[in-house]
Design a protein around this nucleic acid. Sequence first.
DNA 1: ATGAGCCCATAAGCTGGGTTTATGAGCAGG
DNA 2: CCTGCTCATAAACCCAGCTTATGGGCTCAT
Lengths: 309, 309
Amino acid sequence: MSRNDSEDTAPLAHRVPDLGAMELLLAVARHGSLGRAARDLGITQPAASSRVRSMERLLGVALVDRSPRGSRLTAEGVLVTDWARRVVEAAEAFDAGAQALRGRRDSRLRVAASMTIAEYLLPGWLIALRAERPGTAVSLSAGNSAVVAERLLADEADLGFVEGLGVPVGLDSAVIGHDRLVVVTAPTHPWARRRGPLLPAELAATPLISREHGSGTRQVLDAALAAHGGLAEPLIELASTTAVKAAVVSGAGPSVLSELALGEELAARRLVQIPVEGVRLRRDLRAVWRQGPLPAGPARDLLSLARPT
Amino acid sequence: MSRNDSEDTAPLAHRVPDLGAMELLLAVARHGSLGRAARDLGITQPAASSRVRSMERLLGVALVDRSPRGSRLTAEGVLVTDWARRVVEAAEAFDAGAQALRGRRDSRLRVAASMTIAEYLLPGWLIALRAERPGTAVSLSAGNSAVVAERLLADEADLGFVEGLGVPVGLDSAVIGHDRLVVVTAPTHPWARRRGPLLPAELAATPLISREHGSGTRQVLDAALAAHGGLAEPLIELASTTAVKAAVVSGAGPSVLSELALGEELAARRLVQIPVEGVRLRRDLRAVWRQGPLPAGPARDLLSLARPT
DNA sequence: ATGAGCCCATAAGCTGGGTTTATGAGCAGG
DNA sequence: CCTGCTCATAAACCCAGCTTATGGGCTCAT
């Protein structure tokens, strides 16, 4: 009834091959043969053949050159496969995260992490961990620094990750990396057209769009700008990083966010980064654990993966 | 018959919700209601309800808190949604690229780009272009610098993108960004354990895994190391960047690759970056067009998006 | 030559997940 | 207390993707 919309408005899932098809395409690229790709994925050769065909029909592009001696990607197929690989990699990160989230109490490694770290860094670490120590069952819970500390102290978690200035009492920690905070606005904002960098006092005096209290970002910003007149009252406070980004994109005002959260938006120029002069807007990313010797076993494995971020 | 493999070995697509489900989850997060999310995607409310349910069953995690006044994400749901967003974004890039690849000859903007740029940067630009100038039909063809130049001169393309040292004759150009080349090895390679940076002469003397001839990377490397004894014969030459990366990961030897191609591998520590002393391994990324005034219309729109990479 | 062993395509039939329509139940607010 | 929103359940449908069965093309070894 409503299928013949302009192709721009149809749901994404109808314009893009599904994950299984993309996996298949990657397998074809790896093996150079539809049949072997099929076997690799545990399906039959006709299934693979038909699936690749329907993918080509959907995209309107020939992806593989079939020959009696095998199948090779066409020039377009190489490109499509590379794009598909990125989708599949994102799906693998999703999977790694979801598996940890479902993780049972009896997991060998119970991790508690701040939202930002759980969202952007942990899936990658889990994939690496799976590669190095297959079969390590990890369970994940996410929350702010206080929650992480609480879980560690209650022995409900073996290893934690937090960002922010201090280390909660009762815990030992190691810095595993840093995180730059950046000032962003919509491309239409006056700051986006400035010639010189922003002065700390200007930033301090400007009401920002910010996360609700308890955010590690806020802490760092407060400390950095204390010497420049103190932080102005927020323009508006929102519940999630995503909501903040959406508000900034829509032009509601500037904000200060972790660069980890901004990859996509900066690349697509939905947001613009505003340089600031003479303030160090960095914060440490820390692994934390109950006071005492460095945790052994799987916790140590994960820690060594996370180290040089 | 072979379903009950350990859950690690089942195909990814069976462990992860499909793109439609992820889109739905994002819509639920946006709208705070299953019903409204359903309407937004053009399906009925029971369909949405059942789909979210089956997603929760698949993941083994409650994602939304249902109430008679709407649905909000649970804490786990927030995390899952953020991971899903990254998958969907990758799928959007896929879609943008695929649409351009299918683009007809009558497109308003015909782009020719080098593989690296087409693969890593163009989809993002196309998404941004779609946001700013909806309805601009773009067609894309990919090839090395010579092919790009040829297509421009034959008036089969309006705008090109190349990386490398020189600008082909007959074309004007503008630098739109830079691209660092980095030396990488498997984490097990001796270079990964060095204390100090690599010396240019060492790099020059070592056989590398490299792309086949004509690669822009090779050109730059040759020029940079000419003063240090010249580049050694390649250890092995492979057809695609992907094949090179796979070989390096497997420990076959070191290689020099564009940092654009290395995001995932470095983050997951499958590859390690080796610092090099005193050589500038950079190359320009350039937009190119037929000699004459800067192209107008959609070409100019795209150019201005690509500019400050 | 001729058969074996790859490759891929086509055809027919089954199955299950996602859909719709139809209905009901819980809570809010005029 | 009725209207309007929320979500859940049940039954029927449909199609995408799967399997099995088959055939044709090419290459290589016998």
